[in-house]
Amino acid sequence: MRTSYFYGVIAMATVVVASNILVQSLFGQWLTWGAFTYPIAFLVTDLMNRIYGARPARRVVFVGFVVGVICSLVGTQIMGEFGPWVTMRIAIGSGIAFLVAQLMDVAIFDRLRSGAWWRAPLASTLVGSTLDTALFFTIAFSGALTFIEPTNDVSWAGEVLPVLGMGPMAPLWVSLAVADWMVKLSLALIALIPFRIIVGRVLPQPA
């Protein structure tokens, strides 16, 4: 049991580190590669919740949060083409979004754990992912929150364009958020497959 719990901690830390690195690489016009690895954090949290319970799942979340903070601190010291890899707004947005969304995921999963096997992981991940996206992009890029880091020019994110190039007019950061949210929702459905397989192997009783 302790060994498996350790694997959960390592898995969460790996996802957070990988996502912090891959977020620096663009994927198309609206996404980064980190958008495809970060949602795995919800799978790790849900597996820990199903197998060990809500309290151990929260511990794994806090490990991920601490690792994320460390990555952000390191990122602020690495200079890229347009400035530091991680600005203060991005660091704050990332930390708050991760912690709030993951803890919400744990709470919802715990409330629904007695239902159909897919209900808890799907509902908790959908709500958590939505909350994560809304918090991060609003804190990191919304023009209304420039007071968080006045010296950080995010005016580029406020450029008004059609959402995803074809929807209603909105600031660019809204398109980035919508694209990120759509990836999270898609991966939430896909993640049900490994969730079912892993839980089925670890727990002999129906999940």
Rank of each mutant, 00 (worst) to 15 (best):
residue 3 T to F: 13
residue 3 T to R: 13
residue 4 S to C: 03
residue 5 Y to D: 07
residue 7 Y to F: 13
residue 16 V to Q: 08
residue 16 V to L: 01
residue 17 V to F: 02
residue 19 S to F: 08
residue 19 S to R: 06
residue 20 N to W: 08
residue 23 V to H: 09
residue 25 S to G: 14
residue 28 G to D: 14
residue 32 T to K: 02
residue 34 G to A: 12
residue 35 A to E: 04
residue 38 Y to R: 08
residue 40 I to L: 15
residue 42 F to N: 01
residue 43 L to H: 07
residue 44 V to T: 06
residue 45 T to H: 06
residue 46 D to I: 10
residue 54 A to V: 13
residue 56 P to G: 07
residue 57 A to I: 11
residue 58 R to A: 13
residue 59 R to A: 10
residue 60 V to L: 13
residue 60 V to A: 02
residue 64 G to I: 04
residue 64 G to V: 03
residue 64 G to E: 02
residue 65 F to Q: 02
residue 67 V to S: 00
residue 72 S to G: 13
residue 74 V to T: 05
residue 74 V to I: 13
residue 78 I to S: 02
residue 80 G to L: 03
residue 80 G to R: 00
residue 82 F to G: 02
residue 83 G to E: 11
residue 86 V to P: 02
residue 90 I to G: 05
residue 91 A to I: 05
residue 91 A to P: 01
residue 91 A to W: 02
residue 94 S to Y: 05
residue 95 G to I: 03
residue 107 A to S: 13
residue 109 F to Q: 12
residue 109 F to C: 15
residue 113 R to M: 12
residue 115 G to F: 11
residue 116 A to L: 08
residue 120 A to S: 15
residue 122 L to D: 08
residue 125 T to M: 12
residue 128 G to Q: 03
residue 128 G to T: 05
residue 129 S to R: 01
residue 129 S to G: 15
residue 130 T to Q: 09
residue 135 L to D: 04
residue 135 L to S: 02
residue 139 I to L: 12
residue 139 I to Y: 03
residue 140 A to T: 04
residue 142 S to K: 04
residue 145 L to D: 08
residue 145 L to Y: 08
residue 149 E to R: 01
residue 162 P to H: 07
residue 163 V to R: 06
residue 163 V to H: 00
residue 164 L to S: 11
residue 170 A to E: 09
residue 171 P to C: 06
residue 174 V to S: 00
residue 175 S to K: 03
residue 179 A to D: 06
residue 183 V to M: 05
residue 189 L to M: 15
residue 189 L to E: 11
residue 190 I to M: 09
residue 191 A to Y: 13
residue 197 I to T: 06
residue 200 G to S: 12
residue 204 P to A: 05
residue 204 P to Y: 07
residue 204 P to S: 06
residue 206 P to D: 02
